[in-house]
Write a protein that binds this DNA or RNA. Sequence first.
DNA 1: CTGAAAGCGCTAACAT
DNA 2: ATGTTAGCGCTTTCAG
Lengths: 341, 341
Amino acid sequence: MAITIIDVAKKAGVSPSTVSRVLSNHPRISPATAAKVREVLKELGYHPNIMAKSLVSKTTNTIGLILPKPAEELFLNLFFSEVIRGIVTQAARTGYDLMMTTGTTEREELEAVTRLVKGRRVDGVILLYSRQSDPLISFMLEHGFPFVLIGRSDEFPDILSVDNDNVQAAYDATRHLIAQGHKRIGFVSGPPNLIVSGDRMKGYLQALKDAGIEARPEWIVEGDFLQESGYRAMSFFMCLPERPTALVTIDDVVAFGVLRGLTELGYKVPDDLSLVGFNNISLSELSTPPISSMDIGIYQIGYTASQTLIRAVKGEAMPQKRVIIPHRLIVRESSLIQAKD
Amino acid sequence: MAITIIDVAKKAGVSPSTVSRVLSNHPRISPATAAKVREVLKELGYHPNIMAKSLVSKTTNTIGLILPKPAEELFLNLFFSEVIRGIVTQAARTGYDLMMTTGTTEREELEAVTRLVKGRRVDGVILLYSRQSDPLISFMLEHGFPFVLIGRSDEFPDILSVDNDNVQAAYDATRHLIAQGHKRIGFVSGPPNLIVSGDRMKGYLQALKDAGIEARPEWIVEGDFLQESGYRAMSFFMCLPERPTALVTIDDVVAFGVLRGLTELGYKVPDDLSLVGFNNISLSELSTPPISSMDIGIYQIGYTASQTLIRAVKGEAMPQKRVIIPHRLIVRESSLIQAKD
DNA sequence: CTGAAAGCGCTAACAT
DNA sequence: ATGTTAGCGCTTTCAG
């Protein structure tokens, strides 16, 4: 049997409420009794029952992380670990715990969230990634439950969110390729229903446009965040009568896939095709050749999201609804050659 | 205000206890009232307050995952995401949520665990990795708290655990290299205080011994699970007057590091040095050349650990204390050449 | 088969 | 400054 506040009260010869007060550093309590109580507290090895505390205080000191339905693919990506690392580090630092759920189907997903939110199991949640017209966002809004989105929502631009300027980032990545002299630049995108895919696509197109280069639909393919996606894109591109000389990919892992396919077919990077990825995962610098990548500060995204959410649940004033984490291009060999024509 | 069991009772014209019974599918309840109650339940959109339920039932339907102190490095490794993916998938499937904590220092770590365990915040915990004489294991044992270890404990062989046969796996990996004709085989290990490092080292040594090959201390180096570790090991080995012709590394990421260094120096894999890694992360097949790797079923480790723990907290009979996930070597180019001498 | 009542461990008025 | 009391929302004897 765990020891309760009452046990402590008895042993210290005071009332339970006094113990409670000591525990919460109530101002009006005599130093003498406080000391006495604290002593007994230590002696008995007391630890608060969080459930009981939550029941009355209506807070849990826990934040929830909702993994998007097709968590599978996310997990295969270093992005995921990095975000969590940021979240869990900051949360732990603030004395919060992290609760994770996911659902395989859309229904399961909503069920899991309902359990967390309506069951008052967490004080707020972090939504990872947003889809076009995400049902989860509407759900949170409807219930007036604190949350922050990692990503961006078209429908609800006014919610708390942490994101990159993905349009600008893709613009910059494409710009870099253009500066290297490339005129035929392709783009391997992610799932079209994800906002981030759209944003990066937009930046890519804008960069072409600003440089007076015409976009070619056949040089744009959509996939997921997996290597197969890159592999498929690569074989598609290389069979084209007129192929791109450079590629921007939605993720480094996709770039890996492209690279592998290219190598198998005997093509050389960057000589035959230049490559710029996104996310700057640790393995990008280890490939042969190392892959240029847009670093989007993933860890910081997680860290900031957690920080923002915790501030929000504590009712602190939010300086800004939308926090943008800066990006920066890491140029490596895969794009370090001037286009030949 | 969230709607409670009492609201439902009132509206359905029954007592709160009846509603509670319906909720928990109590047998002795008339189908008529059950139906009526369920209807109101739905109508009002009732959702149980988990804190209240936990307070009385003393269970939380939550399992805790304790990340080892130096969580940093773990996070940089795909191993982590895969394990979590397994855990969270199985937990969600069983209606459990996952709670994660970590601590930067050893004290913080113990504090976090104490919060979870003594605060009755979770029903059981999963320990990721075990160190030699791990204080967390003793802690759990002392408090009689349900837990399963991913890994192995020398001190307490009798605890619930999910693991690979790492000795055998390393044996097999080394064996493979020997079968390719190698006689000079090195080993890049992990942190010496981790049990897994010792186990794999043991298997490596045993394989050499069984093949009548003498182990050379200078061909064994210890590092962490990061690429730098591989890089350093590589530069060390290649400066040796007599160098190994093949390497077993504790992790694929380390193999990546070796590979990168080798490539930079102009060496070729597998021609100058054959490589076999561990964990078979998805990127292993994408490197140039693709890296042979021991697949240890990481996802399954997580899945099984979660399953085992949940069974344990439910008090189900445990068929076996220690579950071994099978391993299997995936041979790729990095070790696909006969040794020259 | 169902209701009344007690209580899980804690906090927060309201007293004193 | 401290004690008393009344719940938080739910489950669970114990009656009937």
